[in-house]
Amino acid sequence: MENLFGFLENNSIYIVLFIVLTIWAGIFTYMNSLDKRLKEIEIELKGDNK
């Protein structure tokens, strides 16, 4: 673990890389949950129309 921290201290671009990957994972998860919620609303609306 200390080797990893040492590597990251000398190659700080990889810290930025991990941050960007974390942000991407967050955006993806949020979009996915938004998509699911929207599908549920669509199903509910279709049910109401019948």
């Binding site: 671009i13 990889y14 930025v16 890389l17 960007v20 990957l21 991407w24």
Partner: peptide, 9 residues
């Protein structure tokens, strides 16, 4: 994810 990793590293 691959594009981000490749783009940075």
């Amino acid at each position: 994810t691959l594009v981000i990793i490749a783009g940075f590293s």
